[in-house]
Structures are given as structure tokens and as C-alpha cells.
């Protein structure tokens, strides 16, 4: 099939789809007129039932906790896939010409600015991660922030320094532990004779950091896993850039 023919077929089918979709959308309830009962129910009950003030995280790590467990394992397997695809075989000799020569260090001013920014980012990441049950935030966001804090090391130092940190076995181990401990928290509820992932910890005072029971704990596990996962992805790509081969033309 030529490209032109493919584009033509697409446009015919695409515009028919778009026309039908627009007709259907016109008959939806108008924007701003939300009628679903579940969101309202959770909004009213979340503070009483879970002592958590952020409804979104209460849904993610408690009401819909089982779904998030599945999502966590999507993340886990996708990162596993990236690492598997980009791993270097021991027998492929990398051509020296393609290797990136170690660049000299950046100016001292970049390093001086980076140093406080690194600590601020780490503190901000922990703040976001540990207050997920109170204000918007939680494990996923904290993981991305903490991973980007370590990227600052790459910016102000060099590739080697970043590789030394991320190639450490602890990163891989903490990724696996983060994913496993989520499942284990769920299993702990089973051991107590209640359904999987039931909120079994004491709920605490509303508005306190230690409130919401399981939500904070699961959020922390997710945070560890996401940090490690993103570091492993970045490491794999960096390794690909540094030692990757370009096929013969």
C-alpha cells in the first residue's frame, strides 16, 4: 500500500469517525454537569472513613488500591522490558569511535548552584511523598521528583558519577522491594482475616502526617519503586548513548 493511498483511506474513515463522535458528544450531559454518584460519595465519606483529606490519593491507594497494584506492576514490567532491550551483550565489542569521550567538568558556578538545588529537590520530593494523604502528591509524584534530583548529579558532575550511583545494586533491589512490599501490605490484611488491601493500620487524627492508615505506607512503597524505576530507565538510556553501536550504513 502506498503512503498516499493509506492517507486517503485514513481520511475517509477518520472523518466518518469524527462526525459520528461529534454527534455522540453533543448528546452527552453538558460539560460541568457531573452526575456520577461514586465521586460524590467518596468526597463526602473520605474524611470520616479514612481520616485522609486528599480524596484522590485515598482512592488511588485505598479504595482503588488493587488497581494501583496492577498499575505498579505495569511500571515494573515496562522498566524490566527497557532494561532487557537495552542491555549490552558481553560479546559485542563496542567501537571506540562511537564512545563519547568524557567531557570536562562544568564551570564551578553551575556546581555551586546545583548543590543547594539538589538538596531542595530531595526535601521537596520527600515532602510530596509523605504528605500524599493530606495534600495533592503521593508516591508517584515523589518518585519522579527524587529521580530528577539524582539527574542533577549528572548535570553538575559527569556521566561516570551518575552511573556509579544508578548502576548500584541497591537501585535494582529497592525497585523490586518497592513493588513487593505493596503486595505484602495487601497480604498482611489477608493474614488478619480481612479482604486483600484492607486499611488495617490505625487511622490517626485527620490532618496529621500519620493519618489515613495504609495510604501513607503504600504511598511510600510506591515512591521507592518509582524512584528506582525512573533511575533504571535513565541509566539504561545513558548506557545506550555512551556505549551504543551505530549499524554499518
Amino acid at each position: 500500500m502506498t503512503e498516499r493511498l493509506r492517507a486517503r483511506i485514513f481520511f475517509v474513515a477518520g472523518f466518518i469517525f469524527l462526525a459520528l463522535y461529534f454527534c455522540a458528544a453533543l448528546n452527552l450531559p453538558p460539560w460541568g454537569d457531573y452526575r456520577g454518584p461514586y465521586g460524590d460519595f467518596i468526597s463526602r465519606m473520605v474524611v470520616y472513613q479514612r481520616h485522609a483529606t486528599d480524596a484522590v490519593n485515598a482512592i488511588n491507594y485505598d479504595y482503588r488500591g488493587f488497581d494501583t497494584l496492577g498499575e505498579e506492576f505495569i511500571l515494573f514490567t515496562a522498566v524490566l522490558g527497557v532494561m532487557m532491550l537495552l542491555r549490552r551483550r558481553a560479546d559485542t565489542a563496542t567501537r571506540e569511535a562511537n564512545k563519547i569521550k568524557e567531557t570536562r567538568k562544568l564551570s564551578i558556578s553551575v556546581q555551586v548552584v546545583n548543590f543547594p538545588v539538589f538538596f531542595v529537590t530531595v526535601v521537596f520530593g520527600f515532602y510530596i511523598g509523605l504528605h500524599g494523604q493530606l495534600t495533592p502528591g503521593g508516591g508517584f509524584q515523589a518518585g519522579v521528583i527524587l529521580a530528577s534530583a539524582l539527574l542533577l548529579v549528572y548535570i553538575c558532575e559527569n556521566t561516570e558519577a551518575f552511573q556509579r550511583i544508578t548502576s548500584h545494586r541497591a537501585v535494582e533491589v529497592s525497585e523490586a522491594l518497592g513493588a513487593a512490599s505493596y503486595a505484602l501490605i495487601g497480604l498482611a490484611a489477608l493474614c488478619l482475616g480481612v479482604p486483600f488491601l484492607t486499611n488495617i493500620l490505625p487511622l490517626g487524627t485527620t490532618g496529621d502526617v500519620f493519618s489515613g492508615g495504609n495510604i501513607a505506607l503504600i504511598s511510600a512503597c510506591v515512591g521507592v519503586e518509582v524512584t528506582a524505576a525512573f533511575l533504571l530507565v535513565i541509566y539504561s538510556y545513558l548506557e545506550e548513548i555512551v556505549t551504543g553501536e551505530v549499524p554499518e550504513e
Partner: peptide
Amino acid sequence: APVFVDISPGRLTVDPVV
């Protein structure tokens, strides 16, 4: 926003599920 730090649980909020 469905964050009940400084609003009462009865306030009208957007859907937290989506």
C-alpha cells in the same frame, strides 16, 4: 478540588475518581 484540608466535606467538588 477534592482536597478537604481547609474546606468542609460537604463542599461541592469535581470528581476525584477520574
